[in-house]
Design a protein around this nucleic acid. Structure first.
Length: 466
RNA sequence: UCCCCAGUAGCUCAGUUGGUUAGAGCGGUGGACUGUUAAUCCAUGUGUCGUUGGUUCGAAUCCAACCUGGGGAGCCA
C-alpha cells in the first residue's frame, strides 16, 4: 500500500489492481441506495477530483461516511480500478475510509459546493484555496513561475536576489512603505524637531523596495545576464483590478543589450511561459475556458503563434489621431497615453500584445537612455489586451555625462546616486532591462479579471487580512 | 485619491411610492430514488435588512456621515 496523488491515479500512472491510499478533501458525496456512496476527493495535485466508491459494508459507513460533507478531510485506501461509470477512466474501490477531520458545522462551511462570487471567495482567502477556481489559478501561477526560471536558466541568466529593504529613498517609483523599529508613540527627535532616524534600526530612513532594477543593474554589469524575481511593494492608494500593494515582479537586466534586444527577450519569455501553461496545465486551462473566459485558449494560441507588433510611440499617436474613434482624452505627442488609448491599440488596432517604443523623454524615468533625436528615450511598454501594461522596460543611460545632465534637468542630487553613478564611472557598458508584473501575467493567462484573485493573499489599500 | 453603483438568510438575489407575521433559488438537514458524478424529487427559513446619527406617530424603506465591496479614472507592473 502506498500514498499516491489524485493526479497520478487519474493520469493512469498507477496500475489497475494496485492498492493505494489517497488523501485529500471531499468535494461532493453522492449516495446510492443500492448500497454505495461516491466521494469526489481533491488534493490539489490536478484539477479533477478522484472518485472513491464506498460500499455500505464498511464498518464506519453509516456512522461516518454518510455524514461526510464538502470540505471534510480523509484518507481513502482501496484498489485502483477502471471506472464502471462515465466521467472518469479510473476510480478507487475503497476498502478503508479514514476521516481525518469533519466539517464541524456543514451549514456554515463557507465553501459550499456551488458557485460563489469572487468577492466572497476573497473574504475567505484561507478556504478559497480549496475551490476549483483558486486551485486552478495557483497551479497555473506556479507553472508560470517555474517557466520563468527555466526560461532564464536555459539562456544563461543568473537569478539575483535583490534586497527587499532599501535605504535608497531615490528609486523614484511611487510611494514607499517605511520600515522602522522606532516607537511610533514616542518618536525620537533631533534638536531641530525632526525625526531622528539615526536612532532607527538602520541608522537612516529605510523602506520596502519598489523595484529591484537599480540593484540588478549592478549585477548585470558583472554577470552580464541576470534577473530578479521577488516581491515588490508600492504604498500607492490604487484601488483597481490590476494593482496590488504587494506584488511579484520579474526584472531581467542585460549588459550589452539595447532596447530591441530586451523587447524580443520579453516577447520570447511571454511566449515560452504561455506555451508551458498550455501544455502543462491543460486541465486548468479547460476550466478557465469553460467558466471564466471562453476565448482564453485561442487568445493564448494566437499570441504564441504570431510576432508581436512593434510600434514607435510617435506612430501610435498618429494612428490614434487618425483612427476616427472618439476618445474621452485627446491624443497629442508628448503626453502619456490614457488607458482608453492603450486599449484601442492592443484590443482593436492590433488585437494582440503590442510593443510601444521610444517614448517622449519627459514622461519617462530619469535613468532611461536618451535617443539621438533629443526628444525621446529608449523605453518600451508591452500592452496586453484586457490587461494594459504588462511589461515596462528601457535601455539604461550608461553615459555618465548624459546621465548627470538629466539629473540636473530634473533637479536631482547626484550625491543620492553615488553607487549607481559608479557603474557609469568604472567600465560602463550599454545595458537594458524590463519589469514584468507577475500577477498581471497570471491574470492575462487565466482570464481572471481581478488581480486580487491570482495571488494567494492579496494586499491592497485597507486590505491585509490573513 | 476622484466619479458611479451596491451592502436584505450560510451563499446569490428579489422586495420596500414609509405602515401589521421580510421572500425565492442554491447550500445544509431529513426523507424518496438512482453506478452516481453541478444528480433528480419531496419536506424544511430563528435574518442586529452594513454602522452611527437624523426626519417621522412609525424607518429595512427617506436624509447625512462613515465603513466595506464592485466598476471606471489616475498612479503604475
Amino acid at each position: 500500500m502506498s500514498f499516491v496523488t489524485v493526479s497520478d491515479v487519474l493520469a493512469g500512472k498507477v496500475s489497475v489492481g494496485t492498492t493505494v491510499t489517497v488523501r485529500g478533501w471531499v468535494r461532493t458525496r453522492r449516495d446510492s441506495k443500492a448500497g454505495i456512496s461516491f466521494i469526489n476527493i481533491h488534493d490539489g495535485s490536478c484539477f479533477d477530483p478522484v472518485q472513491a466508491v464506498v460500499e455500505n459494508s464498511l464498518p464506519n459507513y453509516s456512522s461516518e461516511v454518510l455524514h461526510l460533507t464538502t470540505g471534510c478531510s480523509l484518507a481513502v485506501t482501496g484498489t485502483v480500478v477502471e471506472s464502471a461509470g462515465k466521467g472518469q477512466a479510473f476510480e478507487i474501490q475503497a476498502t478503508t475510509v479514514e476521516v481525518l477531520g469533519f466539517v464541524e458545522d456543514p451549514d456554515t462551511y463557507p465553501m459550499a459546493p456551488k458557485r460563489h462570487s469572487m468577492e466572497y471567495l476573497r473574504e475567505h482567502a484561507h478556504l478559497r484555496a480549496r475551490t476549483n477556481v483558486t486551485g486552478a489559478v495557483m497551479r497555473v501561477r506556479n507553472c508560470l513561475a517555474q517557466a520563468i526560471h527555466r526560461f532564464f536558466h536555459e539562456r544563461g541568466y543568473f537569478w539575483v536576489a535583490t534586497p527587499i529593504i532599501t535605504a535608497s529613498d531615490a528609486e523614484g517609483a511611487g510611494e514607499l512603505f517605511r520600515v522602522s523599529t522606532l516607537d511610533l508613540l514616542n518618536v525620537p527627535k533631533t534638536e531641530q524637531g525632526e525625526v531622528d532616524f539615526k536612532q532607527d534600526f538602520f541608522g537612516k530612513e529605510a523602506f520596502l523596495t519598489v523595484s529591484g532594477q537599480l540593484n540588478a543593474e549592478t549585477y548585470a554589469c558583472a554577470l552580464s545576464k541576470v534577473y530578479t524575481f521577488g516581491p515588490t511593494f508600492r504604498a500607492e492608494n490604487s484601488n483597481t483590478s490590476r494593482h496590488l500593494a504587494e506584488f511579484w515582479m520579474v526584472e531581467p537586466e542585460v549588459a550589452f543589450a539595447d532596447l530591441n534586444d530586451i523587447a524580443h527577450l520579453a516577447e520570447d519569455m511571454l511566449k515560452y511561459c504561455i506555451n508551458a501553461v498550455l501544455t502543462e496545465r491543460a486541465d486548468d486551462m479547460a476550466f478557465f475556458a469553460q467558466r471564466i473566459d471562453p476565448t482564453v485558449i485561442e487568445r493564448l494560441q494566437h499570441v504564441v503563434s504570431n510576432d508581436f507588433v512593434h510600434m514607435d510611440y510617435t506612430d501610435a499617436v498618429e494612428i490614434l489621431q487618425n483612427c476616427g474613434k472618439k476618445f474621452e482624452y485627446p491624443v497629442s505627442w508628448g503626453t502619456d497615453l490614457q488607458s482608453e488609448h492603450e486599449r484601442y491599440l492592443a484590443e482593436e488596432h492590433v488585437g494582440a500584445p503590442v510593443v510601444l517604443k521610444n517614448y517622449p523623454r519627459d514622461i519617462k524615468a530619469f535613468y532611461m537612455r536618451q535617443n539621438d533625436d533629443g526628444k525621446t528615450v529608449a523605453a518600451m511598454d508591452i500592452l496586453a489586451p484586457g490587461i494594459g501594461e504588462i511589461v515596462g522596460g528601457s535601455a539604461r543611460e550608461e553615459r555618465l555625462d548624459k546621465f548627470d545632465q538629466r539629473l540636473a534637468e530634473l533637479g536631482m542630487d547626484p550625491e543620492d546616486y553615488g553607487w549607481y553613478r559608479d557603474l557609469r564611472r568604472y567600465g560602463t557598458v550599454p545595458h537594458a532591462g524590463f519589469g514584468l508584473g507577475f500577477e498581471r501575467l497570471v491574470s492575462y493567462v487565466t482570464g481572471m479579471t481581478n488581480i486580487r484573485d491570482v495571488i494567494p493573499f492579496p494586499r491592497a489599500p485597507k486590505s491585509a487580512d490573513f
